[in-house]
Amino acid sequence: MKSRPDRYSGVAVTIHWLSAIAIFVLLGSGFGAAIAVDPVARIGLLRLHVPLAIIVLILTLGRLAWWVLADRKPAPIANAPGWQEAGASAVHLLLYVVLFVMLGSGIALLAASGAGAALLGGAGTLPDFTLFAPRIAHGLGALLLIALLAAHIGAALYHHLVRRDAIFLRMWYGR
């Protein structure tokens, strides 16, 4: 249940991978809804997108609470240059900031547009979301999130394939 100096706990690993899968589905459904011409397809994608975003919010708050109240992160990777540790810390912090901006702008977009009724099973049509200010933050946040995920995944692959320092074992189950 608790993290060790060389690896994350099962709780942290589970939250990480569930969040990762959900975020990729959110990005796909969000961009899919943005380009969908068919209103039925758009509503269908957004009916997946909105509840999944709420799940990501719960997972993210749960992860932060877990670290503050019950667990600690493993030690930094051995022999990693200081700039890599600083970069990893910055990317992780920005991932959280961008996730909260995305969640907040999504909620604001639903509230400002009145789309909640159509998305929560009621009648109605979807508005043109581009007419609402939170859409700008939501769209830019999605692009920034993709860039941060590329940096995060790229660094993990670099550590795994080039440095061969077992980085993936820190964020996986087992001994």
Rank of each mutant, 00 (worst) to 15 (best):
T14P: 00
L93S: 05
L120Q: 04
W83M: 04
A133P: 15
L157M: 07
I77K: 09
G10W: 10
A115R: 00
R175L: 05
I21N: 08
W66M: 13
R163G: 06
A80E: 15
G32Q: 11
L144T: 14
T14Q: 02
G174Y: 05
D38R: 10
L52R: 04
V68T: 07
R63T: 08
P127C: 13
L110F: 00
A88R: 01
L143H: 14
A86D: 03
L69R: 14
I107E: 01
P134I: 07
G114E: 13
V40C: 00
I136V: 15
G154M: 03
A117T: 11
S89E: 11
G121D: 13
L94M: 12
S9H: 02
A155L: 02
A80M: 14
L93Q: 05
L45K: 08
G62N: 08
D6H: 06
F132T: 08
I15G: 09
A117V: 06
A151L: 15
A70W: 12
A112F: 10
P39G: 07
G141R: 02
Y158V: 08
S89Q: 13
L120K: 06
L169C: 07
L99S: 09
Y158W: 15
S9T: 02
L45W: 02
V50R: 12
L161P: 02
L131W: 03
G141W: 02
I58T: 00
G44L: 10
A90R: 01
V56C: 14
W66C: 09
L27A: 14
L143T: 06
P81L: 13
I54H: 08
L95I: 15
L169W: 06
P39L: 04
I23W: 04
A75H: 10
D71R: 13
V37D: 13
L69S: 03
A78P: 00
L157D: 04
L131D: 12
W172R: 12
G32T: 12
A118F: 02
L140H: 00
A34T: 10
A41L: 13
V13N: 06
S113D: 06
V101H: 05
G87S: 12
R163C: 04
A20C: 01
K73F: 00
A166R: 11
K73V: 09
I35F: 12
A115E: 00
A151H: 06
L45D: 04
L145M: 15
G10K: 11
